[in-house]
């Protein structure tokens, strides 16, 4: 038996909105640790790892580890039927072939049950080793989204370079080139407006903007995004989910032939 009650149901709605276009179907894993997911896009260029820790749920019952295969557009469609202030409860029976999403309005005057069919998904679970990154950039998530959107009007790829000058996002396309440099700016009034760059050594990597733009759909989940870069490793774009966990996107770099 599985029963997970999330007071801030909008978090789950936002999570689904941020991954449904990147990943078609995925297994959601539930254990004592929490509710998690690891999935790649169909071309195996990007990977998403989600963790919502059990402590973040108002009620968390998971009698045995369970893996539930879901088509993400269908799950997103059902969650769209929940109000932004609704409490969402995920329920499933051991060995069952359905999952139920229950939506409760804040004053309990409306309770809805949506039952969705589960599917069997053969997914490959990848081991993500702990890595030392050459550079870690923390910046406002809205600023990062804006940069990715602006650059994708010019080109298809972004070169992210971190030097002691700051972090530079560059692209080029048929009509011209664009460079956006963000300097460390830790002395702002609000901590969420700060740009903080931890650089062990300079690093420069090239990525497909299409994927970066897709990751920025997680912007409503967090004010700050953390971008971890190391040569020869996928970039990690992380959005922390308030008190609960994270959504991390890994993107394989483009490699010079």
């Amino acid at each position: 038996m599985l029963e997970l009650r999330l007071l801030q149901g909008s978090l789950l709605k936002k999570v689904l909105e941020s991954i449904k276009d990147l990943v078609t179907e995925a297994n959601f894993d539930c254990s004592a640790t929490g509710f998690s997911l690891q999935a790649m896009d169909s071309s195996h260029v990007a990977l998403v790892a989600l963790l919502l820790r059990s402590e973040g749920f108002e009620h968390f019952r998971c009698d045995r580890n369970i893996s539930m295969g879901m088509k993400l557009v269908n799950m997103a469609m059902m969650l769209k039927c929940a109000g932004n202030d609704d409490i969402i409860t995920i329920k499933a029976d051991d060995g069952g072939d359905t999952v139920t999403f229950m939506f409760e309005s804040p004053n309990q005057d409306k309770i809805a049950d949506f039952e969705m069919k589960l599917m069997n998904i053969d997914s490959e679970h990848l081991g993500i080793p702990e890595a030392e990154y050459q550079a870690i950039v923390r910046m406002p998530s809205s600023e990062f989204a804006r940069i990715c959107k602006d650059l994708s009007t010019i080109g298809d790829t972004v070169i992210i370079s971190v030097t002691k000058e700051g972090v530079k996002f560059s692209t080029k396309g048929d009509i011209g080139t664009a460079n956006i440099v963000c300097r460390q700016n830790a002395t702002v009034d609000k901590p969420e407006d700060a740009i903080i760059i931890e650089m062990k050594e300079p690093v420069s990597l090239t990525f497909a903007l299409r994927y970066m733009n897709s990751f920025t759909k997680a912007t409503p989940l967090a004010n700050i995004v953390t971008i971890s870069l190391s040569s020869e490793l996928p970039v990690v774009v992380e959005y922390k989910i308030a008190e609960m966990g994270y959504i991390r996107f890994y993107l394989a770099p483009k490699i010079e032939e």
Binding site: M40, L126, G127, P129, E232, A252, I255, E257
Partner: peptide
Amino acid sequence: DAKQGNIMSFFKKV
């Protein structure tokens, strides 16, 4: 042109 890398060449199946 640069070639797109693949996640599975960085992270191994467990």
